[in-house]
Amino acid sequence: MSFLKLQNIKKSYVSDRPAFACSSLEVGKGRKIGIAGETGSGKSTLLRIIGGLKKPDEGDVLMDGSSVYPKLDRLIPGHPQMAYLSQSFESPKFIKVIEYLKTNSIEEERFDQVTRLCRVKQLLDKDTRALSGGERQRVALAKVILKEPTVLLLDEPYSNLDPHHERIIKEVISDIGKETDATILMASHDPTDLLPWADEILVLKEGMMVQKGLPKLIYHSPSSHYVAGLFGAYQVIDGTKWSSSSEQMIVRPEQFTLNNHGKAGEVKAVYFHGNHELIEVKTAHETIQALSSPGTYQKGDKVGVSLKLTDYSK
């Protein structure tokens, strides 16, 4: 039996356009699920429906075989075994972090473990008004983890953070996944953040799930131009020119390999990206883009080009 299951969910805000609709979705216990999609695709709505913060017009959400909604007749909104952290949370003012986080019901050992895990031990004596955006995010994470949720719902936790604090939050969320048994569903404003983290990725568009699968499958075998574009640079090539395929193919720059021995194409442009360069090569068939180490090629070089294809559906 699936730990979490969505059945025939439909939620609309205006007219008949669904904010989110899903005939079936199953999530195993302890899994890390990434949710990708453009702004307005339904990511937040999905998380809030799962967490019991928003009831669908139709359908049901089951946890361990029981509907989450009968438990919602309570003063505090949401399911008691789920924790939802939005991108626009607010912590109370005129209070120290330790006062905000610690209650009499929390054991000292547990408190020490969570404050270490969330990188907030050094912030405990600080006033909540003096926290930076990244520090507030970590404190908010510690607050929900201390409640020991069975399901953790993270709504774009990296948004509005500078690179330094974003890196720390990524480390914290990674450690939470390793050191707790929580099932985690995370939506991200940058879908590429989900690739190294998620066990599985759901891609939403206009309230509908358009693809679901392993990160490698989503990245290398996108179901559409929309999915491909969410996860980085891609191009469409004529499959008959590069493989036995008779169709157009979506490929990533790193699937092309360049060498100095062939004469299949000519370098037309070199774009520096720090730890790599994007090489634009004109071949007899079309212009392709490939990756290379910095300084390897320059405009005008004659190069060999090959394409590596891998089946990620197995």
Rank of each mutant, 00 (worst) to 15 (best):
P215E: 07
I250E: 01
I218Y: 02
M63A: 12
L47D: 00
I95N: 10
V97R: 04
R110W: 03
V303N: 01
R17S: 15
A233L: 15
D16A: 12
K11M: 12
E277M: 11
S88T: 13
D125S: 08
G37Q: 14
V61H: 06
K10N: 14
Y69F: 14
S243L: 13
V267W: 03
E280Y: 04
D60Y: 05
S23T: 12
S243H: 13
M186Y: 02
A233P: 07
L4H: 03
G262D: 03
L194K: 06
K43E: 09
S41M: 15
M208C: 09
D73A: 13
D311M: 04
T180P: 10
I288L: 00
T180Q: 10
V270N: 05
F94A: 14
L307N: 03
P157C: 08
Q122P: 04
L291P: 01
A140F: 02
G34C: 08
M208N: 03
R119L: 07
S245Y: 03
A228C: 15
Y219P: 03
P191C: 08
K96T: 04
E156P: 00
T39I: 13
I168Y: 02
P77S: 05
P70E: 10
M186T: 05
F256Q: 00
I201P: 01
A228S: 12
P157M: 01
K170N: 05
P294F: 07
T283L: 05
F20C: 09
V61L: 15
E58S: 15
Y158P: 03
D127G: 04
L117N: 12
D175R: 09
D125A: 07
S174F: 13
T240R: 01
S292L: 06
E156C: 01
F3S: 04
P92T: 12
H220Q: 14
N160T: 11
K216M: 13
V61M: 05
T296L: 05
G274H: 08
D190L: 11
D311I: 14
Q289N: 10
S41P: 09
S246D: 13
F94V: 11
P222E: 03
R17Y: 09
L53V: 09
A269V: 05
K102V: 02
S293A: 12
M249N: 12
I288T: 00
I35E: 00
A36D: 06
P18W: 08
F94L: 15
Q298M: 10
V227F: 06
A187W: 01
D175K: 10
Y69S: 07
L53C: 06
